[in-house]
């Protein structure tokens, strides 16, 4: 079995899913991410990342109700799972612990 590692972009998407909580679906994730990162992101990248996260069971999904907008298609909402949260925590603590090992250097102004 492939190890459940988390790529950089996947991590961003997962963070965004967690942040948006119950309101995370494709377009919302895209727009929030573009706003935060300040770069254009293609929607297909988001879809791929979500699909991978789902197969690693870091997120789970449900469909919303039918609306008149979106060509009558339902929204697919994503929620982070316990495993997903654990993965984020592990990632976060790993980074922090290494970060704290950095000697206290100051870059001169």
């Amino acid at each position: 079995m492939k190890s459940n590692s988390l790529g950089e972009f996947e991590e961003l998407v997962l963070l965004m899913v967690a942040a948006l909580h119950d309101e995370a679906y494709g377009v919302a994730i895209l727009q929030n991410l573009e706003e935060k990162v300040g770069k254009k992101v293609n929607i297909s990248a988001i879809h791929v990342a979500l699909k991978r996260l789902e197969t690693k069971s870091f997120v789970k999904s449900r469909y919303g109700g039918i609306t008149t907008s979106r060509g009558g298609r339902r929204k697919k909402f994503y929620v982070i799972t316990a495993t997903g949260k654990a993965a984020l925590d592990a990632q976060y603590s790993l980074r922090t612990s290494i970060y704290q090992q950095i000697p206290n250097i100051s870059f001169g102004r």
């Binding site: 679906y25 494709g26 377009v27 895209l30 929607i43 879809h47 699909k51 469909y63 907008s69 979106r70 060509g71 298609r73 339902r74 929204k75 697919k76």
Partner: peptide
């Protein structure tokens, strides 16, 4: 399986 989500998202982006 994926069409619902993808088509919906693309259409929403288009509408905006």
């Amino acid at each position: 399986d994926y069409l619902e989500e993808i088509e919906g998202n693309l259409t929403e982006l288009f509408e905006q």
